Amino acid sequence: MSGAWSAVDDYLSAHLLAPDDGLSGALRRNEAEGLPPIDVSDTQGKMLQLFARMAGARRILEVGTLGGYSTIWLARALPEGGRLVTLEIDPHHADVARANLAAAGLAECVEVRAGIAVESLAALKAEGGEPFDFVFVDADKPSNVAYLRAALDLTRPGAVIVVDNVVRGGAILDSASGDPSVHGTRAMFEMLAAEPRIDATAIQTVGAKGWDGFVLAMVR
């Protein structure tokens, strides 16, 4: 069945997405530089871009840059004068992302911060800048609760938060799982269920990336 999921993704991409040198070049550079092929799909990237545009986002925060593929999609949702800050733990990945963003003509509106994300998030809070309008979380899953708590500190009411990879092939049903990513994801859902400042839903997805899903939330 997964072959059909990928074929449908190919069909959707062929009809809805135009060829894009900035995006395809980023994927080629990522592969050449040895980055893992775990970027969002092209249709998921376009979905993120549309979500950010629907939110009217002028300031976007991304937790988990990898090589900047999703960053490019999100940065292209920004209006003139908008800003995106993206956080990446691996210095090599951050350097590759900077090269990809420069090649896509987005270096001026995107800041890539290398380091441990929870520390970078604390630094952003200490800096006291304008709140973010849109947050995309796609990093280590055991830290999802910490990322969501930080996002609440860094956003305004009405801001949109998207968290990726929250179904994990159905593994979230396994309370006895030994996978830290499953535990982190389940803890995130417990937090969302109890947190009055967030209104959230989650959607299962299938496609070229397999069976997974995402959380879509709004800050109250």
Rank of each mutant, 00 (worst) to 15 (best):
A4D: 14
S6E: 13
A7G: 08
A14S: 14
H15N: 12
H15T: 13
H15W: 10
L17F: 00
P19L: 03
G22Q: 02
G25S: 02
G25K: 04
L27M: 13
R28V: 14
N30M: 15
E31W: 00
E33G: 04
G34C: 06
L35W: 08
P36G: 10
D42M: 08
T43M: 14
L48D: 03
L50Y: 09
A52R: 07
M54T: 14
A57I: 06
R59F: 00
I60R: 09
E62M: 03
V63Y: 03
V63M: 04
G67C: 02
S70W: 01
A75W: 01
L78G: 10
P79W: 02
G81A: 10
G81F: 03
R83L: 11
L84A: 10
L84C: 10
V85G: 05
L87V: 08
L87H: 09
I89A: 15
I89L: 14
I89S: 15
D90A: 12
H93K: 12
D95Y: 00
A97I: 03
R98Q: 12
R98M: 01
R98Y: 06
N100D: 07
N100V: 04
L101R: 05
A102L: 11
A107F: 08
C109Q: 15
C109P: 00
V118Y: 00
K125G: 13
E130S: 13
F132I: 11
D133M: 02
F134K: 08
V135I: 09
A139N: 06
A139I: 06
V145W: 00
V145L: 07
A146E: 15
L148E: 10
R156I: 05
P157T: 04
V160L: 11
I161M: 12
R168P: 08
G169N: 07
G170W: 01
A176S: 14
S181L: 02
S181Q: 14
V182W: 00
H183A: 15
A187M: 02
F189M: 09
A194F: 00
P196G: 05
A200W: 15
I203L: 15
T205P: 02
A208S: 13
A208K: 13
G210A: 07
G210H: 06
W211C: 11
V215M: 08
V215L: 11
V215F: 00
L216I: 12
